[in-house]
Computed example of a mutant assay.
Amino acid sequence: MMDKMMATLLESLHEATQRLEQAVAVKESNPDDWLAILDEREELIHQMQERFSAGSVLTEAQRVQLTQIYEVNQRLIPLIEGCKQGVQQQLNNLHRSKLAMNSYNEAGPNGYGAFFDRKK
């Protein structure tokens, strides 16, 4: 028996996965956009799990489609991790710069743009 609701959910999940792949592939894309798509996908997966709990089963074509979604996910994980590491590196650099700036700003007086280093 083919479950129309499951077919619709699976098609929506496939489409959302394709949109996520396109969004992540753009070099300067906004990770907030990714989060919106990931939230949408999470809701679709939750609905699919409810259908499975109710006794729905996948057809062979739906299993193939689910396998394709899985393969896209496997390609996306390293890309997202790379972006995450890049952002973490930027945060670390910003934190280091801020610490250096604060240590010199608290060092004491400066006169007319001249800098007096008291750390020696």
Rank of each mutant, 00 (worst) to 15 (best):
R41A: 11
K84A: 06
I77L: 13
K84L: 12
L91I: 15
A25Q: 10
Q65W: 07
H46R: 15
I77T: 13
L76M: 10
T67S: 14
Q65E: 13
L35M: 11
A54Q: 14
V26K: 08
Q65L: 14
Q85H: 07
Y70P: 01
Q65V: 06
E60A: 15
M48I: 12
K27W: 00
E71F: 05
V64N: 09
A54P: 03
V72W: 02
H46Q: 11
V24F: 02
Q88W: 02
T59N: 06
T67N: 14
S29A: 15
I69N: 06
L66E: 07
V72C: 04
G86A: 09
M48S: 12
D39Q: 12
M48N: 01
L58W: 05
A23F: 01
E81D: 12
Q89E: 13
T67I: 08
R75V: 10
L58G: 06
S56H: 06
E71M: 09
Y70V: 08
Q68D: 14
A61R: 11
L35K: 09
Q68I: 07
L44H: 07
E28H: 03
V24D: 03
Q90S: 10
W34S: 05
V72K: 05
I37A: 02
K27P: 00
K27A: 11
A36L: 14
P31R: 00
Q49K: 11
T59Q: 09
E43M: 11
A61H: 08
I37V: 09
A23M: 10
E71Q: 15
E42P: 00
Q68T: 12
E81N: 08
E50T: 08
A25W: 03
L76H: 03
L66C: 08
N30E: 13
F52W: 06
L58R: 09
V26W: 03
E60C: 03
S56K: 07
V87W: 02
E50D: 10
R41S: 11
A25K: 05
V24Y: 02
Q89F: 01
N30Y: 00
A25H: 07
N73S: 12
K84P: 01
E60Q: 14
S53Q: 11
P78D: 08
Q89G: 02
V72G: 02
Q89A: 13
S53Y: 06
T59V: 05
R63F: 09
G86F: 04
V64C: 06
N73P: 01
R75N: 08
I80V: 15
I37C: 03
R41C: 05
E81C: 00
N73M: 04
I37D: 05
H46W: 07
I37L: 15
I69V: 15
Q49P: 00
T67K: 14
G82S: 11
D39R: 08
E50L: 12
E81K: 13
L35C: 04
M48G: 10
I80G: 01
G55L: 09
G55I: 10
R51A: 12
A54I: 04
D39A: 08
N73L: 04
M48F: 08
M48Q: 15
L79T: 01
E28C: 00
I37H: 02
E42N: 12
Y70Q: 15
N30S: 07
E40Q: 15
D39I: 01
Q49G: 03
S53P: 01
E60I: 11
E43K: 11
A25F: 03
E60P: 00
C83Y: 02
D33R: 05
E40A: 09
